[in-house]
Design a protein around this nucleic acid. Sequence first.
DNA 1: CTGTTAGCGCATTCAG
DNA 2: CTGAATGCGCTAACAG
Lengths: 385, 385
Amino acid sequence: MAVTLADVAARAGVSAATVSRVLSGNYPVAGGTRTRVLRAVEELEYVVNGPASALAAASSDLVGVLVHDIADPFFGIIASAVQSEMESGGERGPGPGRKLAVVCNTGGSPEQELTYLTLLQRQRAAAVVLTGGAVEHPEHSPAIALRLRRLAAGGTRVVLCGRPPLPEPGTAPETAARPAAPARNRAGGDADEPLTIAFDNRGGARRLTEHLLALGHRTIGYVAGPAERTTTRDRLEGHRRALHEHSPGLLADADRLTVHGAYDRSSGYDGALELLRRAPEVTAVLGANDTVALGICAALREQGLRIPEDVSVAGFDDLPFSADAAPAMTTVRLPLHQAGVRAGRLALGREAPPPGGVATVRAELTARASTAPPRAGGTPAGGPG
Amino acid sequence: MAVTLADVAARAGVSAATVSRVLSGNYPVAGGTRTRVLRAVEELEYVVNGPASALAAASSDLVGVLVHDIADPFFGIIASAVQSEMESGGERGPGPGRKLAVVCNTGGSPEQELTYLTLLQRQRAAAVVLTGGAVEHPEHSPAIALRLRRLAAGGTRVVLCGRPPLPEPGTAPETAARPAAPARNRAGGDADEPLTIAFDNRGGARRLTEHLLALGHRTIGYVAGPAERTTTRDRLEGHRRALHEHSPGLLADADRLTVHGAYDRSSGYDGALELLRRAPEVTAVLGANDTVALGICAALREQGLRIPEDVSVAGFDDLPFSADAAPAMTTVRLPLHQAGVRAGRLALGREAPPPGGVATVRAELTARASTAPPRAGGTPAGGPG
DNA sequence: CTGTTAGCGCATTCAG
DNA sequence: CTGAATGCGCTAACAG
């Protein structure tokens, strides 16, 4: 673990500077010299010392990707799309300029998020991509926003993917030391401002509920995610907006028909049971996402209810398994992979920032077999006890 | 992005060395001084420069976790277990000594694996954890083994989790420059040798097939993973061993009853269809893992076959969704989380290496509702056209 | 307990 | 096109 640039230089009979130049590739070097250097590198099995190079160049090739749950395909798809973007920059292997995209699992906790941001800032990461909804917390949210702006100001590219744009600095609590740089032309999307790829959760949820209403459903249960998540709030808002627009009276029951839980299968299962207890007359149940919807299906089936004959079920995200669940799941399609690719390109500065720094991607209704008109009587056949 | 140790030192009225010492915490510093330094750090919003510190200390706090597919819960569970181990080392936040566990998605490709290993070596990672089966490739495998040994020799802790131990150096092709250090006491498990947590895939698969045989099945289809993966090979071997031990004649049909595919749902789906075409008389179908098994179920159902009445199905791994699939999936339980935790501890040097450097964890048969005795007639009721 | 002194390995000037 | 010199920010001996 000791072969350095100098060793290579000695072996190739050139100076360290020259070796550095051929390795960086961003400077003219004579063909013969280059070959000799490369050969020496091979023979000595030399591997650049990242920290040293980062220190000297004042920049590292680390790109952090923060996800809530690494075991959730929603994040897996986005993260691998971001990573794939790192390697498609011309060469394949670990060439010069090759970024190392690393994913960090925050467990959806703002503290963890802050911890990872600090760790990444410490590494002087070239970019940071935050994926998934933000947690709204009176104390943490401003802290995270502050740290993100600081990272951006320090040259780290910050990209938000699937979470709402950062609120305008506004009235900073106290730490407003510097006189908030005179807002430069925001339309241009400064490279040192956090960039955002937002999902149209509100619109998607709204279209999904409209679909159910059009089918004839009037008593629609909703197993939502954690209350403090922006994703949860947006989807719920879209749902209620659709309800309201169809008929204001439908909102009266909304709270009773909503239960909150995590974005996982078991909360779908538990939530559906709770809903059935509160309102046995539901004819449809929406899940916070596809995974939750699967849990809902499991619970309903165990209660002897058929899908969609007795109860319609729908999810959100359109993860791969949703298409071939039984029955195929009605859901809202989010272009996860595409969004991840774009986030990666933005993080690398390979794509022009969207106007205003924010791009919103569409969430498209994908109607499949798990939703159908409610039973004539409105009461399920083999209902629970 | 310019506040340095010196700035903090100046502000606190001490020397840079002292600041470094309070920040590292591994050296006695007077209480008053410490407080003043910490206050200066706060006020200046100082964040350590990782690269500089790594360079000076000749060690970084990066820990790489390589996975085949980040969107697959199998890897997600292991990876998050490893990560959780990084933070549980006393403090929570980004304190000194806090390691940054980052996961890298190789897509199961040896080239990618090699690329990430180089990138990690470049960063002088403190440890590297490789998860999941290895790909057996005449050219890449030795290359990877070589690089892993080199990493280990260079002080990076290398841990293999869910893949077989590295083969003994043996007859290195050509790059055997150094005279292979005289094998030190292997029983002690040198810190600079790759450590392994292997899964008993062979034994698990064998017990699973024995379960099916005990139930009365004789024509068992097998939708295996990619042929060149060690995991695939081991599970298949276990399966065939069970077949052979029950009655050598059963092996005659083994090839016809085996199809290969990826470790995903669609290959389970396609594989089941192919199997039905080749051998409509199958009474049971095994999947390479739980995800594949789910695909198998989907295909069988579409063909009008009931599970387990017409055909029994079983998976491997016991991922969370398997327990509440419908019907609940018979599978082989692998202690993924536990293995990840252990890998993390080994990577951090917090746990003594297992004797010989290799620990094998048990794979336990978990019989549930998706397997049952075959139909009396042996021929399914509503078989495909 | 604390300050001083040297590098860590590399990327850049700046001269040739 | 190439070499010599300088410093990135920090840690690790050494002295006090």
